[in-house]
């Protein structure tokens, strides 16, 4: 039996060299700026101006506590964690519930309701920021936690409902039917059979939603003005705008903001890439 894979030697050496070059250049374009950011965050402003690219002569972490305090990172982290966790849990719960109804309970309303969510997959979220802002003001939800949370749940639902409906459809109807014959209510079936079986799709949704909400900037930027409700992207931008010439601290703040997502990514790398390709649907 021959090896199933085509050997790399089947390719022209010049082609391989070219391909290597492309991949290495692209990787360097990611690694170098991040490296530069990190070493610059270890420099004082005086040193930064004299020594733009090199390794710091006297590396110091002193920019970090100052940046943390000035940008109020403790508030930013608490808010980011709050919005991310609560919206993710609600998106998963609501999507599984509706997905179960769409997939397993026959109703004439399904085509229309399910279809409305599918359109939402391609809706440009940017286009609703002004009406959403005006609505938040007129119903008194401007500058409140709830006023941020509801849109965050809403924006996660289209892809959530699509994935959950598809997943629950793949569970055989007989599972639901036999439980019905045994006298179980739909809620009982949902809680004890469907929800536990849907764990993989729940993980995918959690991954998609966590990275979406954690990095969300546009909506919270217009729906909130109080410092107490700011999340990491908003707080970091405000801080780095105000201290644009204070390079060391600005770079320290950016580094602090970078670390959580990079760590999250390195831990859940496989689930994230699976989630991204599962979420790539054209609606």
């Amino acid at each position: 039996m021959k090896d199933q894979r085509i050997k790399a030697t089947d390719f022209h050496p010049a082609l391989r060299a070219f391909v290597y070059l492309m991949v290495i250049v692209f990787a360097m374009l990611t690694l170098y700026p991040l490296f530069w950011l990190f070493i610059s965050s270890l420099k004082t402003n005086t040193e930064f101006q004299l020594n733009l690219l090199g390794w710091p002569r006297n590396p110091t972490f002193s920019n970090y506590p100052t940046a943390w305090r000035l940008a109020q990172f403790d508030i930013l982290f608490v808010n980011s964690i709050f919005f991310t966790t609560v919206s993710t849990l609600l998106v998963i719960a609501f999507s599984l519930m509706a997905g179960f109804a769409f997939a397993k309970i026959r109703s004439k309303a399904t085509t229309f309701l399910h279809g409305s969510f599918i359109i939402g997959i391609l809706l440009t979220l940017q286009s609703i920021m002004v009406p959403l802002f005006l609505m938040a003001i007129s119903v008194g939800l401007y500058d409140t936690r709830l006023g941020v949370l509801i849109p965050y749940v809403g924006m996660g639902l289209p892809i959530g409902i699509y994935l959950c409906t598809e997943f629950i459809k793949s569970i055989p109807d007989s599972v639901v039917e036999s439980a019905r014959i045994d006298g179980a209510s739909y809620f009982r079936i949902f809680a004890s059979i469907i929800a536990p079986m849907a764990k993989p799709v729940g993980v995918t949704l959690a991954i998609l939603n966590v990275s979406g909400v954690w990095n969300e900037f546009m909506l919270i930027n217009i729906l909130v003005s109080r410092d107490a409700l700011r999340t990491l992207p908003v707080g970091i931008l405000k801080f780095s705008g105000a201290l644009a010439s204070d390079h060391g601290r600005q770079f320290a703040a950016l580094t602090i903001g970078l670390v959580p997502m990079v760590v999250f990514y390195l831990i859940f790398r496989n689930q994230i890439t699976k989630g991204v390709s599962a979420g790539a649907v054209k609606g």
Partner: peptide, 16 residues
Amino acid sequence: LVLPAVAVYWAVMAFP
């Protein structure tokens, strides 16, 4: 089962 999702989605995505 569909109410929470439909209510939220229609309020903040479809209606705007």
